[in-house]
Simulated scan of single mutants.
Amino acid sequence: MAKPRKKQPLRTVNIHCAQCRSPLYKYRKGGKGALVKCFVERIAEDFTQQPCTCPGCGQVFAREMLIRGTPAYKIIGRKVGVK
């Protein structure tokens, strides 16, 4: 399969924990669809101390994996909100 585009999208979205509302990432998202995965190279700002764990409540909101040969976080359903 093809790798993600090298040119990053301009639009950034704020990703926050659905349970405690603490900020997790500022992410460069492309497209209109739901947030299913976060490519690590597209994260503009990271507010977490441990990968895939909320700094406020300690909830695990994603899993680390390789998608199309690129490191990414696969989001667990209804654990994060996007604004």
Results as ranks from 00 to 15, higher is better:
81 G>T: 07
63 R>G: 00
11 R>L: 12
61 F>K: 04
60 V>S: 08
4 P>G: 07
59 Q>F: 03
32 K>V: 12
81 G>W: 00
59 Q>V: 15
64 E>I: 12
76 I>M: 05
62 A>F: 03
22 S>L: 06
44 A>F: 07
62 A>V: 00
73 Y>W: 15
11 R>V: 15
16 H>N: 07
75 I>C: 02
26 K>P: 02
60 V>D: 02
25 Y>A: 00
2 A>E: 13
57 C>N: 08
15 I>T: 05
32 K>D: 15
76 I>S: 01
69 G>S: 12
46 D>Y: 01
3 K>Y: 04
37 K>G: 00
49 Q>L: 13
37 K>C: 10
40 V>T: 12
2 A>G: 10
82 V>L: 09
78 R>S: 13
74 K>L: 12
59 Q>W: 01
23 P>S: 08
79 K>G: 00
82 V>D: 04
40 V>M: 06
36 V>R: 14
35 L>D: 09
26 K>S: 11
52 C>N: 13
46 D>L: 02
45 E>F: 01
10 L>Y: 01
24 L>Y: 03
51 P>C: 04
51 P>L: 05
8 Q>A: 11
80 V>L: 10
58 G>D: 03
34 A>R: 14
32 K>C: 10
79 K>T: 15
72 A>T: 06
20 C>D: 10
69 G>R: 11
80 V>E: 02
24 L>C: 04
29 K>Y: 05
76 I>Y: 01
18 A>S: 15
40 V>H: 07
55 P>H: 06
61 F>S: 04
24 L>G: 04
37 K>T: 08
39 F>S: 04
10 L>R: 06
3 K>I: 02
12 T>V: 14
75 I>A: 04
30 G>F: 09
43 I>Y: 02
21 R>W: 02
21 R>A: 11
28 R>K: 15
8 Q>D: 13
40 V>E: 11
61 F>H: 04
69 G>P: 11
53 T>A: 07
25 Y>T: 01
9 P>A: 08
26 K>E: 15
53 T>Q: 10
60 V>M: 05
11 R>C: 04
12 T>I: 09
80 V>H: 01
44 A>R: 13
9 P>C: 10
5 R>C: 03
45 E>A: 07
11 R>M: 09
77 G>E: 11
75 I>N: 00
8 Q>Y: 09
63 R>F: 04
4 P>S: 06
47 F>V: 01
13 V>Q: 08
11 R>G: 03
70 T>M: 08
1 M>D: 11
49 Q>R: 14
40 V>N: 05
41 E>T: 08
24 L>W: 01
38 C>H: 01
63 R>T: 07
7 K>D: 12
33 G>A: 10
56 G>S: 11
67 I>S: 13
82 V>R: 11
44 A>N: 10
6 K>N: 13
31 G>R: 03
26 K>N: 11
75 I>Q: 02
8 Q>I: 14
63 R>Q: 09
40 V>G: 00
60 V>C: 07
57 C>G: 07
82 V>E: 13
6 K>P: 08
20 C>N: 05
64 E>A: 14
50 Q>G: 00
80 V>M: 02
76 I>A: 02
